[in-house]
Write a protein that binds this DNA or RNA. Structure first.
Lengths: 348, 348
DNA sequence: CCTTGTATAGAAAGCGCTTGCTGTAACGCT
DNA sequence: AGCGTTACAGCAAGCGCTTTCTATACAAGG
């Protein structure tokens, strides 16, 4: 029914061992023999049996990429960059690898399940992207799983995620705190004193770090923060819209709204407009990430650009062992403040 | 070193066969025995060896999702929906499956490579999303590959992609032609007579179908199309920006610009604004897809909503054999015209 | 001409799991 | 009591490949 190595061997009049060696190209095979084998492969339309090969060789060519939300360009861009350094015929020398992205939907259980599945497949490497959960039992479970994966020889890279102590994971961490701080400093520099903040889900590291940066900037400027000025929500437009209305209700005198990310910021803009407020004349808005659409908003969004594609590419190369990991296994990737039309001096 | 089935069997004082059956749960095992085995699995922290299992059972739990551009929400949304019906602990009864998305980057070779890789892994199912290439040799190669995959028992579903004759593939096709036609009819109905069209890459089916719909609407209204009114480009914002400038250069009297998709439309809006034109007062703009950000553009985008999430979910269910395929293996998914702020009556 | 070295091919032993088939008790029936 | 059932559990034969070790052939050196 299906063509096997043995069939190819028979047709090429060689032993299965030789065919295997031709296909893997890591053992001397005479040119004429190789030729003959390749022809047979072609004629029979032979396709290697991945599981069998993985079993015998005790390695696989699968590389997993875990993302929180594949529908969000933040992850899409990173995943794309990672994959481009790993998979398909895109890259490199050294055998094709199946780079696969797994969508956890931000759910801790799914994250764990995917890691187990990847462990089952004896994945060659795993890249985890985006913020981690701070929920304790889960964090411990993930760390344990990563440790076990690492012991089994799977290379692990965290991209845009805080380091995982006691594991072999290499971490490329985004400087969310620094970016958040810089952004708010910019707003304060323009003269804003009453700033609303729309944070992401409470239990994400990203949320906490960005918020900490924001607060650090306020503190440095001697601005006492009003607890009413912070609202939590999901990382999407809808949440931004609702949170903004809530913020406005709590304190109509706010002159700026800082959002957890660009999608949220867009929702905030919509809410402000729907409330009859002009941006930035009445209220300034700022986002985070600088996703491609952010420049198209009207007015275009002041935000912090994160080099998602670059970081992803680097993570991919490290996962493939094609780039030296940073010293200590940890590198911080900084963002860049992009001042655009959505922020201006406060009214009055 | 690594724990195997045999280790578990020894610990539970049963044969490996029994352990396997407990784990696969498709054969009667006494409750007490099962209990004992499960405990051993737990104590030993045993993880099934995927390749070995796939080899022995001649099946795998991998499901591949091919997308053209994972950084584009159009694909991200579909992939997310497909995956939610397939993978992780998200869905279903019947064993966990590893749903993986593969990014072809729109490259025919990568598409083929991924299909081969998936074939190697003996994937349980494959979902191909988005428009196909019309490039003849490649189309034939893909068809051949799909046929072979189908013969090997892999279920194949096309989502937002035209049917593949002579294969076992089930197709959920978007009615790009109908949507394109409806959109242009709307514009014509408003009074527009000189409409620019920014098409996608020439060799994509999606591009051709949307353009055909547009032209059908023009023809039906007795409008003779000027060849200068159509420009081709990639499916991204940048291309839309440049194409619009080109369109304006060719014929400054255009009163509407129809874009191949929403990203392109956003680029078009930016170009129009940068040219000092107001939307829709001077020029109306229309997109396609209705991605989440489209409603946030200023003005919000008139477009055709494609039920990406619904179609993806359905494709996922069909791929898993949890939903009957449509009769004839082909279903057409229609879009819905969303009239918003970016289209209005032409000036003068 | 025989020994040693080098290049290449084959034999065969698994890799860790699944599953058809073969026991073997315990059970129910006549 | 005798016999067919039923319900589990184990044996063992692979699944299709990789890889170590061994064999062969020929070239070169003494």
């Amino acid at each position: 029914m299906t063509v096997t190595l043995a069939d190819v061997a028979a047709r090429a009049q060689v032993s299965p061992a030789t065919v295997s060696r031709v296909l893997n190209g890591n053992y001397p095979v005479a040119a004429t023999t190789r030729e003959r084998v390749l022809r047979a492969v072609d004629e029979l339309d032979y396709v290697l049996n991945g599981p069998a090969s993985a079993l015998a060789a005790a390695t696989s060519d699968l590389v997993g990429i875990l993302v929180n939300d594949i529908a969000d360009p933040f992850f899409g861009i990173m995943a794309s960059a990672i994959q481009s350094e790993i998979g398909g015929p895109g890259g490199r020398a050294g055998g094709e690898r199946l780079a696969v992205v797994c969508n956890t939907g931000g759910s801790p259980e799914r994250e764990l399940t995917y890691l187990t599945l990847l462990q089952r497949q004896r994945a060659a490497a795993v890249v985890l992207t985006g913020g981690a959960m701070e929920n304790e039992p889960h964090a411990a479970a993930v760390a344990a799983k990563l440790r076990r994966l690492g012991e089994a020889g799977t290379r692990i890279v965290l991209c845009g995620r805080p380091p995982a102590p006691e594991t072999t994971a290499i971490a490329l961490t985004f400087d969310n705190r620094g970016g958040g701080r810089e952004l708010t400093e910019h707003l304060i520099g323009l003269g804003h004193r009453r700033l609303g903040y729309i944070a992401g889900p409470e239990e994400r590291t990203t949320t906490r770090h960005r918020l900490e940066g924001h607060r650090a900037a306020l503190a440095a400027a001697g601005i006492e923060e009003d607890p009413r000025w912070t609202v939590h929500g999901r990382y999407d437009r809808r949440a931004g819209y609702e949170a903004t209305l809530e913020l406005l209700r709590r304190d109509p005198s706010l002159t700026a709204v800082v959002a957890a990310n660009d999608s949220v910021a867009l929702g905030a803009c919509a809410a402000l407009r729907d409330s009859g407020l002009r941006i930035p004349d009445d209220v300034s808005v700022a986002g985070f990430d600088d996703l491609p659409f952010s420049i198209d908003a009207m007015p275009s969004l002041t935000t912090v650009r994160l080099p998602l594609a670059e970081a992803g590419a680097r993570a991919g190369r490290i996962a493939m062992g094609r780039e030296e990991p940073p010293p200590g296994g940890i590198a911080t990737v900084r963002g860049e403040l992009m001042v655009r039309g959505s922020s201006g001096v406060p009214r009055e």
